[in-house]
Write a protein that binds this DNA or RNA. Structure first.
Length: 458
RNA sequence: GUGCCUCUAGCUCAAUCGGCAGAGCGCCGGCCUGUGGAGCCGGAUGUUACGGGUUCGAGCCCCGUGAGGCACCCCA
């Protein structure tokens, strides 16, 4: 086949809108962050779960309300109607319905994996993206809700964030808005949809939006006054208790939140990180109790994750009616913000040491040394093109982010030594050949300590 | 799925009224070097996102497609 024919037949390489390739440098960061999240989930005693990416369409349909149009669906070769999972919560509900007898309740699981939505892509919004969820099924305890907040706190601080906030609200507060403003319940969705934009368009914008949807000015002002209340959690709770005294369901919700904040503090959430935020809006068709979302200032991607209690969902898939609560961390948004802030470390290669082979030297001793390093637990690679001179090998290591280069050329062999050089520090050290592995292992752990103490690389 | 904006070298950006496609950084090749990040010499930087149209002539104007972004919608 000639090149011309080849070019004509070859399709333009491309990826679909909202889908992405992850090159090694990006994958290292993704794996770094998912490892942090996995560590947090497991530290709180959540067990891993995985489920198929495809589900029968009837499992996915009807549980996701308005977003059904965002479902990727197709007919498979056997004529079955199939959908790609839209979130990780529906699969959890299905697992609980199918395996209820095998699960110990409360069932605590975490699940990290891709989900698909045929949405219009934007910054931090993709058609294929990862969610990292932790949920508890089978308890109504507010401790479980507080645990969700505590997990968020541990996850975000574990990733290096310091300026995050976890906003907390309650379904009962949201549903109380309409009666509080003297409006019929049917206006609740309109009110919630509007106050959800408070951050973006401000109080005046929210008021305009409400009025544009037929809410009387007085009622809009009343709602805005309530959701605009700020202060310490105790202050806001007290004020809302007063304002919503006539609405028993709201009182119960506020009581939940009072406990939640106490529990969260005891679970290690620092003062000011879990904030009662009455303007936090979450979908009404889903959540039944406490709800929360995480924010970082100037993130530009909306919330980094959300969660809450959904006591009525599990039963809808045919299993026992079980209460549930949980969180979802948006890996992509986390990474967008981390990348923008230069927090996405882990720029080093997976390779810890390159074993150099000098030009015209025998490659076998280098291969043997690499083998020893690997047996010693060091991720090592060996120069694959020994015609490259030593400087080119340095440059290869530098460019790839390999921190160490190990040289055991003819000079070292004659002296019975190895030379270990740290690329960035330009630090040469000579060790006896038979101590190469232990010496490098020692240098690596020394370096890791240094990185932890001082994340700024030279 | 709707509306609007954007797309020039690997990256960041230029290109007067429609008149020869440019800079910096990076990259590639050669030479040299058992201890470097360089030097010297040389080179490509390119289907101006893609496909059409108008024009003597299109990076620039028009239409379509794709991708990215913003706002809806919704959400991670």
């Amino acid at each position: 086949m000639s090149n011309e024919q080849n070019n004509q037949k070859r399709p333009n390489p491309r990826v679909l809108s909202g889908f992405r390739d992850f090159l090694p440098a990006q994958m290292r960061v993704r794996q770094h962050v998912t490892a942090i999240l996995r560590g947090v989930f497991e530290r709180f005693g959540y067990e891993p779960l995985d489920t198929p990416t495809l589900e029968a369409i009837e499992v996915l349909q009807g549980k996701i309300g308005q977003d059904e149009k965002l479902l990727y669906r197709f007919t498979d070769l056997g004529g079955r109607e199939v959908g790609m999972r839209y979130d990780l919560t529906i699969p959890l509900a299905r697992v609980v319905a199918m395996h209820a007898n095998d699960l110990v309740l409360p069932f605590k699981r975490y699940h990290m994996g891709p989900v698909w939505r045929a949405d219009r892509p934007q910054r931090g919004r993709f058609r294929e993206f990862w969610q990292c969820d932790a949920d508890v099924v089978g308890t109504k305890s507010v401790i479980a809700d507080a645990e969700g907040v505590a997990i968020y706190n541990a996850a975000l601080s574990g990733c290096g964030f310091t300026d995050y906030a976890i906003r907390v609200n309650h379904r009962a507060v949201l549903t109380a808005l309409a009666p509080y403003a003297g409006l019929p319940e049917t206006d609740a969705v309109t009110l919630i949809r509007a106050i959800d934009k408070l951050d973006k368009i401000g109080p005046e914008g929210v008021k305009d939006e409400m009025m544009a949807h037929g809410i009387p000015e007085k009622a809009a002002e009343r709602v805005l006054e309530l959701v605009g209340i700020t202060g310490s959690n105790d202050t806001v709770l007290a004020k809302l208790n007063g304002l919503l005294a006539e609405i028993p369901a709201a009182q119960a919700g506020l009581d939940d939140l009072a406990h939640l904040f106490d529990y969260a503090a005891a679970l290690g959430v620092p003062e000011g990180k879990a904030v009662f935020f009455p303007a936090l809006a979450r979908g009404l068709d889903y959540y039944t109790g406490p709800v929360y979302e995480t924010y970082v200032p100037e993130g530009g991607v909306g919330s980094l994750g959300g969660g809450g209690r959904y006591d009525n969902l599990i039963g809808t898939l045919g299993g026992r009616d079980l209460p549930a609560t949980g969180i979802s961390v948006g890996l992509e948004r986390l990474l967008v913000v981390m990348e923008e802030r230069g927090m996405a470390g882990a720029t080093e290669s997976v390779t810890q040491a390159l074993v150099a082979i000098l030009p015209n030297d025998d490659p076998l001793p280098a291969l043997q040394l690499a083998t020893e390093l690997r047996i010693g637990g060091i991720r090592a690679e060996v120069t694959l093109d020994p015609k490259r001179n030593l400087m080119q090998q340095f440059q290869y290591a530098e460019r790839k982010g390999i921190p160490w280069i190990v040289i055991a050329g003819s000079n070292e062999r004659a002296a019975g030594t190895v030379t270990i050089r740290h690329l960035a520090f330009r630090d040469d050290r000579t060790y006896p050949r038979d101590q190469a592995v232990s010496a490098l292992n020692h240098l690596i752990s020394e370096w890791n300590t240094h990185v932890e103490v001082n994340p700024q690389k030279p």
